[in-house]
Write a protein that binds this DNA or RNA. Sequence first.
DNA 1: AATGTGCAATTTGAATACAAAATGAGTACA
DNA 2: TGTACTCATTTTGTATTCAAATTGCACATT
Lengths: 226, 226
Amino acid sequence: MGQDMYVNMDEFLPLRDVVFKTLRQAILKGELKPGERLMEIHLANKLGVSRTPIREAIRMLELEGLVIMIPRRGAEVAQITEKNMKDVLEVRKSLDALSVQLACERITEEEKVALKAAKEAFEKATETKDVTVIAAADVKFHDIIIEAAGNAKLTQMINNLAEQMYRYRFEYLKDVSGHERIIKEHQEIYDSIMNADVEGALAASGKHIDNQETSIIRQLKLDIVR
Amino acid sequence: MGQDMYVNMDEFLPLRDVVFKTLRQAILKGELKPGERLMEIHLANKLGVSRTPIREAIRMLELEGLVIMIPRRGAEVAQITEKNMKDVLEVRKSLDALSVQLACERITEEEKVALKAAKEAFEKATETKDVTVIAAADVKFHDIIIEAAGNAKLTQMINNLAEQMYRYRFEYLKDVSGHERIIKEHQEIYDSIMNADVEGALAASGKHIDNQETSIIRQLKLDIVR
DNA sequence: AATGTGCAATTTGAATACAAAATGAGTACA
DNA sequence: TGTACTCATTTTGTATTCAAATTGCACATT
């Protein structure tokens, strides 16, 4: 009775959610390229399911903006244009600003401890030179700040935006020469939040995004030429 | 040849989109109440379609956060809590600020003309005492500003947020005594944008949302008690 | 050679069919 | 009287079937 009655529900996800995650990953990692058609029967065979969960997953991807629908022709992977990415970054910057501002006001003592740990973990991670590890540590640092902002809607929206930059952010973190600067920026953001210095936090966070923007746009241009 | 070759495509929307819009409207207008179950066969019969488009529409509503899924039990209309709405308004305020700021920098001459017309149309609309007309005029005014910001992602996100406040905003505009203040606030926003006065525009827009927030939260509380 | 036409193949859109799980009413039994 | 259990009903999850539209190609026509 007092026992844990919940099993890990993640293992019993409906097929549509499995398909959704699979396709999203494929798009974000670039395995499915912009413009590529997503044909239902083809995908169904490939993933070993019927068309129904494929269709439902496509509806979700459509609403996230990762695929576009052409009537009577089906779905294809959305094109990522420079304008498109600039728009995303512009909004992202604004929401990140809100996020650090709210974090300054609302962060708890536990979160402060966690943020310090995450900051230090990121510094350690850069020493590994393993991009996957570094990226995960970076995500963790920012996740704590977003959580500290205490706004579920904001969390959801930032995560959605982050998703659209996923592939390029990866490239950004690959560049070892940039790590030192990122560490310094994290330190500035961290210090500002700890001192509830809203102005400082906004400045530091803005600079942080601007640097990413430069890198992402450069990557994107390379990608388009390719 | 020189003729208009496009037919009104809206009339040939896939059923899933028709169902999606129908259900969304029903939820936002309060016809489908929070907690109410959305049973597929029932909805299918009611709308005269099969389960397939119903399911696809539910997937979209789920991603918009208007319904929540309970495994093996189906969808139900999401609860609107005060915290939830405050979160939405907090983000909305931030994005509106970005929107007026960008509009100050990017608005074209044509858009300036349109904005003036929309401002005056709203003033005229308040005289009709017809809430539908007033709401439409208000939307038009704000739409022009958002368009002038020239950021498609921002447009999409603000529209999504606006949707979640739909029902309460309607109540806000019903209150005739508030019209004069709204007109004054529109005038301030308009003037600031015309003079590319970013500071002024931010202040005016912030005040505008704050007033709405007060009204919406009050409405929401009444709604919950009901 | 260029353009138009018709037909077959492919693919989406929608409906229906089938399988599995959850719910709830009714009944047996302590 | 109350509790547990069975079984029919309901509902979701998934697969399959059917209809309609689009596309591309072959062929005819100018």
